[in-house]
Structures are given as C-alpha cells and as structure tokens.
Design a protein around this nucleic acid. Structure first.
Lengths: 147, 147
DNA sequence: TTCAGTGCAAAAGATTTGCAAGCCG
DNA sequence: CGGCTTGCAAATCTTTTGCACTGAA
C-alpha cells in the first residue's frame, strides 16, 4: 500500500485518529482505519469511489456508510459541494483550514486559504450579530493554467 | 394558490421566466411553470419536498427531475449545500446575489450579502491568478435570536 | 400538424436496516 | 467473555430511462 504522506506522518495521523475514537468511546477497527487512510490521501472523494476502493480492501458498502456517518458525527469528516458533486474529505481537525477552488474547465480542485478572507468573515459576523461555528467557501472559475 | 409575492410581481417573474425559456428554444409548459413558481416562493427547498409539492399539482416525479436539470442547464436554478442537506433555489438571475447563514440551533436559513466580502474575493482572485465565475459561501453558527 | 415534453412504469443506483457471526477491549 | 461492529442480504428511497401519448407553437 502506498501513501501520500511519509510513513512516519501516517503513523502520527493513525495515532491521532485512534485517540479521537477512544476519546469518544468508539472502537478502533480495521474497516474504520482503512476508510480513514483512504480519506487521508488528501483529495476530496465521492462516496461512490470511496465505496469501491474500500470494497477492494474487503469493506462492505453498509460499513462505509455507517463509518462515514460516524466520522461526520465526530467532526472528522465533512461533505463539500463542488459543482453538483458531493465530495467527502477530512475536516480541519486533520488538516489545515482551507477552501476550494474548482476549475470548471479542467475540473481540478485547488485548496487555498486567505487571511484577509477570514478577517472579513469576522467583521461580517459582528455586523450580522451571529456567532460563526464554521464556514465553507467554494469558488468556481478558470484556473491560471487553463486561461 | 398563495404567493409570497404580490400577484403583479409574480406576473413579472412568470414573464421573465417565459422569455428566458423562449430565448433558449424551450417550451413554456404547465409543469415548468408550476415548478418555477414553487421555487419562486423563496426559501431553498429539498428535491424531496419539491417532488411532493409538485405531485399535488399533478406533476410527475420524472418531470420534476427533468425540469430541474433543464433549469440548472439554463442557469436558473442552483443547488446549495446547507449542513448535509442539498437544497434547490433560483439563482441570482431571479433574485439578488446572496449567501447563506444557517443557524445550527433553530435551523433557520438567512440570506445575506456583503460588499466587503465581494471585494475580498476580487482581491483573492488576482492573488491566485484565477478568474472567478461564481462563488458560494455558507456560514453556519448561532443566530442572534438563539444566542 | 409536428415534435418536444409529459406521464407511467420499469430499471438502475444509492442508502438504510435486520440479523447472525466476528472481533475489540 | 460481552457487546459493539461487521458482512450479507433484503428493504427503501432516489434518480434515470424507454415509450406511447399529449399539447405548445
């Protein structure tokens, strides 16, 4: 099996993952680890593909759904909308805060973050008199390579 | 039947709607008008509910799907993600540009817009060297009433 | 009149659920 | 060992498709 992260980092993440589960009285099982590692590969993945990939490792479809529901409940996974597709990815708990830019020409999805944007949102929150728990921005357009 | 807009405004919208269809060589049919008016009521609506409401007016489920696909193709309708739900609403072509704030406590969805935010996005676009076609921001948190 | 658009029914996919067996703690 | 998890299969729900008929232009 091949990882996008060096093995040492993967171990770290696996560890962090195990701790999070235990802290919530959830068991660390083989299917859960397999699915977590799939998500750890980085790019947002559609449920259908996650199901297929997990099946290769012997994980049943029903288990994938139950696991994603669990991960979501634990705030480990979130669903993002890119165009009309729904994709799954690890939340900021297991990565840095970011947003998505989707190139409508080549389909590439680029993560980005912007301090100024975050500041703008803070100001917005006080203007609207709300307290922000989370926010998600999706920008679509043409990337520099495609222009 | 009851509308959220005064009848005169509804007529205007119906008109605008008919023109858009005709401009795209699409026919103005009863099911399409029924579904359009449903969306015109304002708040984002899940497909399931739209299906049920349309059925009350005798519109078949398959037609609802085909119509929403058409409206999306014409840039009349967009799908937004609020929490884990997917909701349908008219695009900015039939309303003013806005984003969504979702109160996780009372479930209310509030539309808002912010000039400063738009300016920030413009700046971001030039920094990332991309050209933005559209953007969608979803903020979730607690509204002032629930605090 | 003509053919795009619709209803109906069936097919295809996606998601959920019940239950016996397996495995983590 | 005990009970949470899983795999498997069946049930549900959602979305798509084929086809004959209807109605908008």
């Amino acid at each position: 099996m091949q990882y996008h992260l060096p093995m040492e980092q993967t171990r770290n993440k696996d560890n962090q993952f195990a701790l999070l589960l235990k802290a919530n009285n959830e068991r660390v099982t083989s299917p859960r680890l397999i699915i977590f590692r799939q998500l750890l590969r980085g790019s947002p993945i559609p449920m259908a593909k996650l199901r297929v990939k997990s099946a290769l490792d012997g994980v049943d479809t029903a288990t994938v759904y139950r696991t994603i529901a669990l991960f979501t409940r634990l705030g480990l996974v979130q669903e993002i909308g890119v165009g009309s597709r729904r994709l799954l990815e690890l939340t900021d708990n297991f990565g840095s805060h970011h947003h998505h830019f989707w190139c409508t020409k080549c389909g590439k999805i680029v993560n980005f973050d912007d301090n100024h944007l975050e500041a703008t949102l803070d100001a917005l929150a006080s203007r609207l008199d709300i307290s922000i728990e989370s926010h998600q921005l999706e920008i679509s357009g043409i990337c520099n390579a495609c222009q």
